[in-house]
Design a protein around this nucleic acid. Structure first.
Lengths: 343, 343
DNA sequence: TCCATTATTGGAACCGTTCCCATTAATTTT
DNA sequence: AAAATTAATGGGAACGGTTCCAATAATGGA
């Protein structure tokens, strides 16, 4: 970053001079000590401020004042609609409370995550919302233990003993599997992104197995890394389309991204794949109702989760030092044609 | 924002003492004067930094140093996939050049836009990417004329004489309309979000009319405000589904958001609406291939546009004072079943 | 009327860095 | 060998605010 722009800045001192008061008084005009100012002083300062068009420099004020009003958010994949909705909820919650949200997208890259973390630290964020791969937790843990308040969303990272906001995965999977059983399906193929290290996926797949047992469903787990071996999904699904009708099979997708990938792969294999297999997606996406007979989904209250993450975080920032809280939200079911009754 | 957290910060002075050098030298260790340091000094400082776990305070450094490394982005609707892709492109471009992007979502609210603008100013962003409704341009113009570099994306705002990055709307509409004509359609209904004040929509609708004339297509424009009168769309489309087959009609949607709304409305009206009307959407969305026979789209190179916006902006920040540049990108056509040949 | 409070106001140090300038050591030039 | 550069380094002001504390004015009680 080369050459500086050299734009002269209007300072609190300019306002003070213009209003004929001390800079302390102008400082008080903003900030919590405002009530100390007399009526006349307040109007004088007010007038100068609007005449000059002054606005305070939050960066300078945070130096001595210690508060930046900045919340950092580290997300693994900004193009995931789930993440976007989460960001949106978090941003609204921040704004309503006078904070600003700085979002950093790691694109699931550990090195990038580290760099972003440094950047956010450098800007003295007051807290951090974390939603990453958790491949390299050590730097996060270090920051957390050094006193930086954090909240994890969707998943918790091993060794990071902070608050967490996520889905009640057991309830969600129960909802999904009982629905499939009720509709007459006999076998379920769960397609999930790579599981290791991501707690929400671990929980979902674990519950998948146990719920299958409870509901008397045959189960099969298919873990696929869409980034590195995109072809495998199509291959597996080609086989599945053959076996599914015979065994009354349904596919359960582990999140919105896989759900899309599965839809695309199925679509590529044959014209109307959902006549041969059931499909139930985790995460509600705006287009799910439009595809084929409509895709049934298990929906997370994402916006509310983003907001709750911020609420938790701000509570910590204000100094609450209770034991870490894990707050889960309930999923709801959207029944559509892709899980029509079979027999 | 109440009580401060009172976490003691490690400063450049601590490092200096630990390494037995002056704080100036430590300061030089980061920053452009690094080459002045001798080899031995560099290693000594390096050692202290990693021993103490020090990282510099960018906020403090921006105070005297004038550079925050922050770029602000003001967007109207963060949940619009077009916007998300744009943000993603911009963020990557920023990161690659050592800047950080702070995104503010206005939810198309003028008051909120004003507040966000104040916030961004307060953080001393070095430049601003603007993609808003343009309902209240005055504050933006004021900031721009006060010397804050800006770049508009997708649309240009009246009175704001800054760079602009957007789609070549004439080319895009030409592509769309000639395709529809070639496929045998006779009448096109263009559905667009509210036009006034948004240049890209004005251009698209104007070109729509002129291209219709050129291609010998009958044209009709339908402007709908989805937020405030969501029912009107369904009503109009119900009528359209009746007339379309007779007049070989196709719908052209003005952007991705309307495209979704149109799909939803059509879907609600009858099982296979795309057998009765053609449909061509502006903006490529990941699900377009999956709905019905596949929805044809006119695609914008969104990521590239976001990146270009940042490149333009940084050029201005470095001091380039040329006349404002308008840079447009070419659209491409994705042909799918929704614009199959009719006769 | 005098002293103790209370309500306002201002002065100056401080926050963590950068940057200007002075200083010292090393190297060249004459 | 003395003078002039050049290369490294450090000291302290400055950046634009906040905050502690002292100072002054106004109020109230005895």
């Amino acid at each position: 970053m080369p050459r500086p722009p050299a734009r002269p800045r209007l300072t609190i001192l300019d306002v003070a001079r213009d209003a004929g008061v001390s800079k302390t008084s102008v400082s008080r005009y903003f900030g919590p000590e405002r009530s100390l100012l007399s009526e006349s002083m307040r109007t004088r300062i007010e007038a100068s401020i609007s005449r000059l068009g002054f606005y305070p420099d939050r960066i300078a004020s945070s130096l001595r004042g210690r508060r930046t009003g900045l919340i950092g958010m580290l997300v693994a994949d900004m193009r995931n609609p789930f993440t976007v909705a989460m960001i949106h909820g978090a941003e609204q919650a921040c704004r309503a409370r006078g904070y600003s949200l700085v979002v950093c997208n790691t694109d699931s890259d550990d090195l990038l995550e580290q760099r972003h973390l440094d950047v956010l630290q450098g800007y003295n964020v007051e807290g951090l919302v974390v939603n990453t791969r958790g491949h390299s937790v050590a730097p996060l843990v270090a920051r957390f233990e050094a006193g930086l308040p954090m909240v994890m969303v969707d998943r918790h990272l091993p060794g990071l003993a902070c608050d967490m906001v996520g889905l009640d995965n057991a309830q969600a999977m129960h909802l999904a599997m009982t629905h499939l059983a009720e509709q007459g399906y006999r076998k379920v193929l769960m397609v999930t992104p790579p599981i290791p290290g991501i707690s929400s996926r671990e929980e979902r797949t674990a519950c998948f197995e146990s719920e299958a047992l409870l509901s008397g469903l045959e189960s099969e787990l298919f873990e696929v890394d869409l980034d590195n071996e995109p072809a495998r999904l199509g291959e597996r699904l080609a086989g599945w389309l053959d076996e599914a009708p015979a065994c009354r099979g349904a596919i359960l997708t582990g999140n919105g991204v896989v759900n899309l990938a599965v839809c695309q792969a199925l679509h590529q294999l044959m014209p109307a794949p959902l006549e041969r297999t059931g499909l139930l997606g985790i995460d509600e996406l705006e287009w799910c109702a439009l595809v084929g007979p409509g895709i049934s989904t298990v929906e997370q209250p994402v916006g509310a989760m983003g907001e709750e993450a911020i609420i938790r975080l701000l509570t910590r920032i204000e100094g609450d030092a209770e034991a870490p809280v894990h707050r889960t939200f309930e999923a709801t079911l959207n029944v559509r044609g892709s899980t029509a009754r079979v027999d």
